[in-house]
């Protein structure tokens, strides 16, 4: 502030004197000298007046280097989101090959919905150092960018993540989702059952994946559109149509009893038709064919709970 005041004063007076100096030098009388002095005074005061019309001499400048130093001195947990981002960016700028910083910034950006940039940061991170968690986050950012679609690029990221660490739930879940979207229910079941089996029983992801898998895999394949319109009878009642669908499922299972997902669909349809015993029987059949596969067991447990088909306890019977 003091330095600025001194510089402004020196500049103002100096320039005013310089401009008025030819008048002073050429002045032949005191009146002319007075004119020269008047011109100088008007110039200096005028410049100061124009400056003060909007100037903020008390407000210091803030070069980015100062901002960066200020942020670095604050504990990360005390920073706002925006400040945290700036601090991460500062680290990445300083250490462009730091995989942790790149991954953290990528996650931050993904959380904020800035997927394009997040993907770039996560890609840079895995180029420096492959990490299953970062690859999984990269895959998820790609899925989010593509509005939920597991693109081939995202699939490659998830596959690489699974290869490095098959205990991560997200890559397997999304690989299963991609298989399911492609119509390959068997592969979807393998992915989901595989990860549900590998996760500890008390892991919240295990339960979440099992519930989602049970819901998706027990839906009739293709939905109502799957019914051949050529064989649709406009006079047929909905109940009759569903009965025909059940008959179709049963016939299919007779031909291929090892199709676990079809057992799951049959269980769900029977549950909807209030045929609880039939539904339980279908789940039991699926369980028997799955053997001791813990992952499939978890999914079938979830299906049971969703349909209210848990074995009735004695107390309940009373």
């Amino acid at each position: 502030m003091i330095a600025l005041t001194l510089i402004i004063a020196a500049l103002g007076v100096g320039v005013a004197m310089w401009i008025a100096s030819p008048l002073a030098k050429g002045a032949g009388s005191p009146v002319h000298r007075l004119v020269a002095f008047g011109v100088m005074a008007v110039l200096a005061v005028g410049a100061l007046g124009v400056y003060l019309a909007g100037g903020q001499p008390g407000l210091p400048g803030q070069p980015y280097a100062d901002t960066e130093a200020r942020l670095a001195a604050i504990a990360p947990e005390d920073l706002t989101g925006e400040e945290q981002e700036e601090r991460l960016r500062a680290i990445v700028r300083r250490e462009p090959g730091n995989p942790e910083a790149l991954a953290m910034l990528g996650r931050f950006l993904a959380f904020d919905g800035r997927y394009l940039e997040a993907i770039a940061m996560l890609e840079r991170s895995v180029r420096v150092q492959e990490d299953a968690r970062v690859l999984s986050d990269l895959g998820q950012a790609l899925v989010n960018l593509n509005e939920g679609t597991v693109t081939p690029e995202a699939g490659r990221a998830f596959a690489a993540a699974m290869e490095l660490d098959d205990s991560l739930p997200e890559p397997a879940f999304f690989m299963g989702a991609a298989a399911y979207d492609a119509g390959d229910r068997e592969a979807a079941l393998q992915y989901w059952a595989g990860i549900a089996g590998r996760l500890p029983a008390d892991d919240p992801f295990r339960q979440a994946i099992a519930v989602r898998a049970a819901d998706l895999l027990s839906r009739p394949a293709g939905g109502p559109q799957a019914i051949d319109p050529d064989v649709l009878d406009p006079d047929e009642s909905p109940e009759a149509m569903v009965s025909r669908m059940v008959a179709g499922l049963e016939a299919g299972l007779e031909a291929d009893p090892g199709d676990l997902t079809r057992w799951m669909v049959l269980a769900r349809v029977r549950a909807v038709l209030e045929d609880r015993e039939g539904a339980r029987a279908a789940i039991a059949e699926a369980r028997a064919r799955a053997g001791d596969d813990a992952g499939i067991g978890a999914i079938l447990d979830a299906l049971e709970r969703a349909g209210g088909l848990e074995p009735e306890t004695e107390g309940e019977e009373e």
Binding site: L4, I8, L11, V50, G55, L59, G61
Partner: peptide
């Protein structure tokens, strides 16, 4: 400093 000096120079 730069900003205020710049402003004064414009004046």
């Amino acid at each position: 400093m730069i900003a205020e000096l710049g402003r004064f120079l414009i004046a």
